[in-house]
Design a protein around this nucleic acid. Structure first.
Lengths: 103, 103
DNA sequence: TTTATATATCAAGATATATTGATGTATATA
DNA sequence: TATATACATCAATATATCTTGATATATAAA
């Protein structure tokens, strides 16, 4: 029950739906890419990514000074059905706008 | 998006998960049955039923002085998958305890 | 037509969640 | 070792949601 509520709670927010769909569409991205694409402050992005990760939708891979977020694999049937439903919602997401100042 | 968030928001609450599962298990019940089974005050039950109805999970049929709630039919695939996931959660629900004082 | 039952809704307070700005930590480069 | 970049977390405030008790409405029986 607690895990279910954490999963459901993680997608019960417009900002997180957009970020989740953005990652679903663009694949692996780092935090500053999202920050730059959405024009939101970094702490806000970081918090929502943590909630989506704790909700079981995202995984994070830290390489160098970056944290790369992507859809968790393998993803169970239930979360897959949620992602599919979200992909049908016609959500308005920004274009990927790389935000990293170094490579 | 708004409909999706209303759907998700409606199941983002422990009390509503229990009520929804209770109706899924017991079939059509009236408000005072739920009130009596869960030992919660009526306004609280009524409010959660409305949210679950607005979330697309329940329908209501008013007959006489009673309002009978049941799982909405037909139920789309997405909500069906949610109900199925909830049914696997091993949620502790009370036994049906009829609360109507008249017949 | 008065009263009891069943249900819905409102207002107030309690609780939870989101946003922001500040700060902390880690990595890499100068 | 000093500085910039990338990210996470905290504290304060704002906003949303939940619970309760009071009240309103509708139905049916006395």
């Amino acid at each position: 029950m607690d895990i279910f509520l954490k999963t459901i709670g993680s997608i019960n927010d417009e900002t997180r739906l957009k970020i989740l769909h953005f990652i679903d569409v663009n694949g692996e991205v780092c935090v500053c890419d999202i920050e730059n694409s959405f024009e939101m402050i970094q702490s806000r992005i970081s918090r929502h990514l943590k909630i989506l990760k704790d909700g079981g939708f995202l995984k994070v891979d830290r390489r160098g000074r970056w944290a790369y977020y992507s859809i968790r694999t393998p993803l169970d049937q239930f979360r897959q059905s949620i992602l599919k439903e979200i992909s049908c919602l016609d959500i308005n997401i920004p274009l990927l706008n790389k935000g990293c100042k170094v490579e």
